[in-house]
């Protein structure tokens, strides 16, 4: 492989990994508070369609991106009501959210199919850094949302591990009873974590429809939401590791496209299988007995009476 092909694949890996990165950061925060939300796929789809619609209406892709985040967070609140307040089964509630998001986005996007986006997020050279050979070409000839995600990763890490609020959030996920006794509002913190998870999933979805492939196609997330959930396990609930995983998955997706371009004749169906097979492979590899780093109270409803 020539060096130019390698840089092209790596740059594409970042672009392809970014929607997964946004979503998995969101899921990571949600899970750190002890709530498992399997509705990422649905929230991403809602973010993708609402972001696209608002951008088409207003012509402003930043407004669209914000709308995608907002509506992603809004549908996440359904999960919060069901699992935090009503203590419903988190797995089934997440599945319901995915189903609802798939249907809702399909309904909303019905009239959006085939409309081209006039003003998508476009790649630009960040502060001249893009001129640095290799590294610049890979990392700094991207669009604004990719640059935003570079900031978001250390920010999430700092928030979780270096601030009081982050400590409180993790306490709620590790031992809600103790957190409650210490005077924290368990339910409120969990609501916030689920909301932020939805906001970031919505951002990941909006990235797909506003930057990655500027259009609306039904079910355009194509399982990326699920890969994002798997990535949280891979990252051992650490934002800094999530970025590695996201670009790894992005790389596999990007490689599939490039292999075809080079003339390697593998059926595209096998190339499309790769990210999913790789996810299974990674899950089997990183899971050993007990999930290292998993919040202790993940998936369990909290009831004060049963403390």
């Amino acid at each position: 492989m020539s060096i130019s092909l390698i840089t092209a694949v790596l740059a594409a890996a970042i672009t392809a990994g970014t929607p997964i990165l946004y979503a998995s950061l969101g899921e990571l925060i949600t899970e750190r508070a002890g709530i498992l939300n399997l509705g990422v796929e649905g929230m991403m789809l809602v973010g993708a369609v609402t972001g696209f619609m608002v951008t088409v209406q207003t012509g402003n892709h930043w407004l669209g991106f914000c709308a995608g985040m907002f509506f992603g967070g809004l549908v996440a609140l359904i999960h919060a009501i069901l699992t935090v307040t009503l203590r419903a089964n988190q797995v089934v509630s997440g599945l319901a959210l995915t189903m609802f998001g798939t249907g809702f986005s399909g309904y909303l996007g019905q009239k959006m199919i085939g409309i081209p986006l006039e003003s998508p997020f476009r790649a630009f050279n960040l502060l001249g850094l893009g001129k640095i050979p290799f590294i610049g070409t890979v990392f700094f000839q991207q669009d604004a949302l990719v640059y935003l995600s570079y900031l978001l990763v250390p920010l999430c890490w700092y928030f979780l591990f270096r601030t009081n609020a982050g400590l409180n959030l993790r306490a709620v996920g590790e031992h809600p009873g103790a957190a409650d006794a210490a005077g924290l509002n368990v339910a409120l913190l969990r609501y916030l974590a689920v909301f932020v998870g939805g906001v970031l999933s919505g951002a990941g979805g909006a990235y797909l429809s506003l930057a990655y492939s500027p259009s609306w196609v039904q079910n355009m997330t194509a399982g990326r939401g699920w890969i994002a959930v798997a990535l949280v396990i891979f990252a051992m609930w650490n934002p800094l590791k999530a970025i590695v995983g996201a670009y790894l998955f992005g790389g596999i997706e990007a490689l599939g496209f490039r292999l075809q371009a080079v003339g390697i004749t593998i059926s595209p169906f096998f190339l499309k299988m790769l990210p999913y097979l790789f996810t299974i492979f990674v899950l089997v590899l990183v899971t050993s007995g007990r999930n290292a780093g998993a919040p202790a109270a993940l998936g369990l409803p909290y009831e004060r009476e049963e403390r």
């Binding site: 009501i81 069901l82 419903a88 509630s93 189903m99 609802f100 798939t102 249907g103 309904y107």
Partner: peptide, 23 residues
């Protein structure tokens, strides 16, 4: 004029209510 996605949405909503109803 409604897409069949409407039914998928309805399925999700039914499941929401079933979960809420369990309380």
């Amino acid at each position: 004029g409604l897409p069949s996605a409407t039914v998928t949405m309805l399925q999700g909503v039914i499941l929401f209510f079933v979960l809420a109803g369990e309380i």
